[in-house]
Every structure is written in structure tokens, then in C-alpha cells.
Design a protein around this nucleic acid. Structure first.
Lengths: 343, 343
DNA sequence: AAACAGATTGGGAACGTTCCCATTTTGATT
DNA sequence: AATCAAAATGGGAACGTTCCCAATCTGTTT
């Protein structure tokens, strides 16, 4: 056994098996069945003793396709993103694709760089959870024939499918639940919507529906420059007379709000607390935080199958939106202790 | 602008710039400085108007190296793993490498498959957080000259560097803190050590040090088959007379134990609770859970630089272990309310 | 037995790049 | 002006695969 053996190639396997490179190539491709059983075993043996691994770089070079999917994630430390990555990876693997995941840390600069990188690796499809609005780059990528799917966040002037939560429905479900529980005044807490379309949609639907339903709706835009505890405290104290609830636009907002509740000594429940995105610790905070869980595996799978459809020429007629339905996970944080005489 | 333009190549850029492919190749490689400024601008312009992207597959094929690092993660939904991935990615990017992350979901079968895949992509280095003991495969990879680093979990009979927490030190720090706080009886909760060397090391150090320090040390091995609440309950009730604490071997154990504390109505603090691994929610559980935070960014960086050293021929003389020091994050869960008359 | 169709196999070009080496250009020195 | 060294540039082979097409082999039909 050699101390350092450079990688074995197709040709060496062919030589050992006493056949041609073409046959070995076929053996490892989709045409294995065209080979005589005898030849197949001979090749299998040779490949085995040499420990042969096909070189996917070479395959990717010559027409065969790279069998790679690329994924751009805005924040890999966000549990929601990780859950979706997990779903995407499962689905990709199941279809014989591998995944390169790039994390942009919400930095448009890094986003641009990673996009260049991914297309340099000849990925066959791209799943984008954007931080900025890299429309120009993405348009160029689409023009070069690489299918592309947007995750959670839309991008203006880009004709691509968007996959994510049904944000309007989520807000509706949350409001319905909160109202049903007796809350009459609702504070919607969100990070700055900026370019994140999901945040925009949720915020917009909230203000719209609050008005329609005749709820006293307020919004609180988080922003590390400004301290939001004032607003929150005022809101909670007022709700001693009429129960109010805080609705959090996503997981990190839920984290921030829970922290603030504790710091300010606001009782959870009497003042309601609810969040979009399910998190492992939501059941641990007494009395448990009610959430809308996103079907992350479904979302990941949808992204991959959308890509695969495009790869197989089943291009959708027009860019579609795939809206997924959240699951309501009721816990104690949305049960006011009051006699619900305000209903 | 063509509706669908197949990818532009080096040659097309050369033609447009009125030069040879070699010069263009140099322009995009490390030899750019060897080119006349005039030629450089000419190439830059041509590449720009054509929107040229070097094809990394072709580069990887012909000697130039793939500039890819591979990483195998046992459980991507574990926040600790994600944090390390994040550190690795940062460090890799800083050195001009990209990262393919594969998640094995703790399944040795998938692990094997992903290892095959990664080496097929000609990764130049491999960072392995193993689920099983794929020694044979890893030995083959090392023999083929690909440097390799183990993360958190050692593998028998493999001469590779191991990077992770200084497990003995972590246990010592935890015990010291708990004893200082007045706890005299400590229950060490861990998942089954199996092949996970970090778990083994922690467990072993615990039993050893408990004996040395004259602490009443018990261990509780979690296991989804058996219900552990009995043991925990008995332990907590007994500690009404002499304060006891539960030490959790890692983040998921901390999660499980916190759940159990709540379900059984055990007061956190009077019965101590402490965990290895810092988690976002540990400060939210009243009165806050004391943790030993792992320096995940440092660990990720160490893994990459260890790989890079090997790539640059600075092979360490013998496989090393890089042991990192945890940071103690004290919170209320390790403050018994008792008058410390038992000290 | 000859002829033929179909299945099986093999040779060679091509993919887009890098690297070796040869060639040309530049500028300094005699 | 001639010579020479160094710098700059270019041509061609090679990397390991896939795919096209040609060559061979099998078994069946006339």
C-alpha cells in the first residue's frame, strides 16, 4: 500500500479491468445496465481494489453537469434558516444533488461575493434567501440559464418563484387567536422591514387587519439605536385595564421581547406574548410562549422541487409564489388570567 | 443582450482583449502582477463586458486545486455545531477557500455517503465532526494526501489532529464553581457516550474528579428508552437537606433537564442546574442557567488554520490536540438560596 | 451458411482551465 | 550599434471525464 497515492482515475480502473474508459464511465453513470453482467463485476472489482472515486470536477466540466445546488442564507445562526437548510439538503440529496451553503451574515457585500463564487462552481440551481437586493447579479444568473428560487424574501424586478410562509394568513391566524383569547390591544413588534419582503408583508397585513377588525393595533420597529423598552412598558401598563398582547414578527424578535418582558417585570399571559417561528425554548419560558411554527421541511422541499422542475424543462408558465401554512402552537403566554369579561 | 448566453470562457475574453488565454489565466490567478498594466486593463475590460466568471470546475481539474474545504457535521440543528460552522466558514473565506457543509444527522450511513461525495469534489481539506467511526474511509482519504482535522470527536486509530474543548478543564471548572457555590452532591447528566470521545472524556473526568474532591457524584445517562425523571426527582428531593446540583454534558441535555425540572416542579437554584454549551435561552429561564460557553469561533478558526498548515507542508510532527478553554457564564441557577451552613 | 439487426464495446474529441516551455519584447550594458 | 539578461507574452499539452460515432460481437432469420 503506497504511502501517498495520487487519486486513481477512470483509465487506471479500465486498465486493471481490461476494458475501455468508456465502459467504466458508463458503469458509474446512468447507463450501467447496458453493460454485460460479467463486465460489470469486473469493473466493480477493479474500482474496488483501487478505491476509485469519480472526479466530479471533471464530470462537471464535460457536459455532465455538476450535480450541485447552491444556497445563500442571510443568517445561518437563525434557527429558522438552519431548519430550512436542513429541509433543502434532505430534498437535494434525495434527488442526487449536493448542496453548497453560503452564509452572508446579512451583508450585501458578502452576498455579492458568494453569488460570484456559486456561479463559478457551476451550480445547476440556486436557492436564495437574500440580504440585500442583488437584482442585477441574479438577473445575469437567470439569463445564463441557471434556475433560481427565492426563499422567504422577494426581490424586485426579478421573475423568479418565491417560496415561504403565507404571511397574510399567518397574521390572520395570530390575530384570530389573540382576539379569541380576549386580547383587544395588540402591539406588533418587528425588525425594520427594509428589503425583507416577508417582514413587509406581515407588517402591512397587520396594520390592515387591525383596522378591519377594529383592534387597537400599534407597531414597534426594533432598531438597535433606539431603546424600545419605554414603548413596551407603557403598552403593558396600560393593558392592566384592557388586556393587550405583543405579537413578534419572527424568532429573534420573540427572543428580544421575552428578554424585555423579564427585564421590565411584565407578567407573560396577563400581557400576551406570541411569536412567528417556533423555537426550542418557547415551551420552557413559563407559562410557555404561543407560536406559529413554520413548516420548514416543507419549505425546503418545495424550494428543491421547484428548482428541479425548472431543470427538467417543466418551467412554470409564470413565476409562482408558494405560500405555506403555519401551525398554531398554543401555550400559556396567550391566556390572560382575567375573567374574560371584555369579550 | 442574448436571451440565453452559455457561459463565457477564458478564450472568448482573450479574443476580445486581443491576447492569449495564458495571459487571461494569469490575470485571474496569483500572477496578475506579471502583466503589463496596459494589458491588465484591457483584459479587465473584456472580462467585464462579457461578464466572465472563471470556471472553478476546470480549474480544479487541472492542478490548480479546487479551493474547496469540506465539513462533515453530525447534527446541523445543534446550535453549537452551527456556531462552529460559522467560525469555520469565516476563517475559510478569509483564506480564499469555500466550504461544502454536509450534515449526517448522526447517521453513520449518511456519513459514509457524504465522505464519498466530498472526496469526489476534490476538496483540499476535510473537517470532520463524526457520528460513527469511519476510520477505514478516513484513513484512505488521508493516504490520498488530503489533510484532515477532527472536530470535538476523536476517532480511534486515526493519526489526525483533534480540535475541541478542553474537556477535563471544563469539568474541573464546573465542579469548582458548583462546590464554591455550596453544592455537595452532583448529578452528571449525559447522553450515551458511545463513540463520542468528548462525551467520554467529560464523563470520565467527572467520575474521577468527584472521587478526588470527595463529592457525592452520580451519573445519569439519558436514553430515550428509559425515563429518567425518577432518578432526577429522587436526587432533587434528597437535596432538600444538602444542596445538590445537576451538571449537563451539553446543550441538548441542558434542554432536556430544564424541561424535566419544570415538569417535576423542581426549583432551579435550590437544586443547582448548570450546562456545558451556551444557548440563547439560558438567560431567559428564571433565574438564568449557568453555563460553560465554548469559544466556537476560535474552534472553527483553529480547525481551518490547522488544515492550512498541513496544506502548506507545515505538517505538524505528530497529530496534535488543540484544547480550548471554556468561559464560565454565571447565572442564578447555581445559587442555592440556603444559608451556606453546609460548607 | 449467409446476412442482418441489435446489443455491446471502444477510440477519440471536447469541456475550460493551468502550467511548462518557447518566443518575443524591453531596456540596460558594453 | 550590438549584445545580453530579464521581463512579458503566447502556444500547446494535460487534467479526468462524457459523448458521439464507429467497430465488434451476439443471436436470429432467411
Amino acid at each position: 500500500m503506497p504511502v501517498t497515492s495520487s487519486r486513481t482515475t477512470l483509465i487506471e480502473v479500465a486498465k486493471l479491468a481490461g476494458t475501455s474508459k468508456t465502459s467504466v464511465s458508463r458503469f458509474f453513470g446512468p447507463e450501467r445496465e447496458r453493460l454485460t453482467p460479467k463486465l460489470q463485476t469486473r469493473i466493480a472489482e477493479a474500482a474496488n481494489t483501487l478505491g476509485y472515486q469519480p472526479n466530479l470536477m471533471a464530470r462537471g466540466l464535460k457536459g455532465g453537469g455538476s450535480r450541485l445546488l447552491g444556497m445563500l442564507v442571510a443568517d445561518i445562526r437563525n434557527p429558522f434558516s438552519v431548519a430550512v437548510v436542513h429541509g433543502v439538503e434532505q430534498a437535494a440529496r434525495a434527488s442526487g444533488y449536493s448542496l453548497i451553503v453560503c452564509n452572508t451574515d446579512n451583508d450585501p457585500k458578502q452576498e455579492q461575493q458568494h453569488l460570484r463564487l456559486l456561479s463559478a462552481y457551476q451550480v445547476e440551481g440556486l436557492i436564495i434567501n437574500a440580504s440585500g437586493q442583488p437584482e442585477a447579479q441574479l438577473q445575469a444568473i437567470m439569463r445564463s440559464g441557471v434556475p433560481l428560487v427565492l426563499l422567504d424574501r422577494d426581490i424586485h424586478q426579478l421573475d423568479a418563484a418565491v417560496i415561504g410562509l403565507d404571511n397574510a394568513l399567518a397574521i390572520d391566524m395570530a390575530l384570530e387567536h389573540l382576539v379569541e383569547q380576549g386580547y383587544r390591544s395588540i402591539l406588533y413588534a418587528s425588525e425594520s422591514p427594509d428589503y425583507a419582503s416577508a417582514r413587509q408583508e406581515r407588517l402591512q397585513r397587520f396594520t390592515q387587519q387591525a383596522a378591519t377588525l377594529g383592534i387597537n393595533g400599534q407597531t414597534l420597529i426594533l432598531n438597535n439605536a433606539v431603546d424600545h423598552t419605554q414603548t413596551l412598558n407603557a403598552f403593558a401598563r396600560r393593558s392592566a385595564s384592557a388586556p393587550g398582547a405583543v405579537l413578534c414578527a419572527n424568532g429573534s424578535v420573540t427572543l428580544a421581547m421575552t428578554r424585555s418582558f423579564q427585564k421590565l417585570g411584565i407578567a407573560i399571559g396577563p400581557t400576551g406574548l406570541m411569536g412567528i417561528d417556533e423555537l426550542a425554548w418557547c415551551e420552557l419560558i413559563t407559562p410557555g410562549i404561543t407560536t406559529l411554527a413554520q413548516p420548514t421541511d416543507d419549505i425546503g422541499q418545495a424550494a428543491v422541487s421547484c428548482l428541479l422542475n425548472q431543470l427538467n424543462g417543466l418551467a412554470q408558465t409564470s413565476p409562482t409564489r408558494y405560500r405555506h401554512t403555519p401551525r398554531l402552537q398554543v401555550r400559556g403566554s396567550t391566556t390572560p388570567k382575567h375573567d374574560p369579561k371584555y369579550v
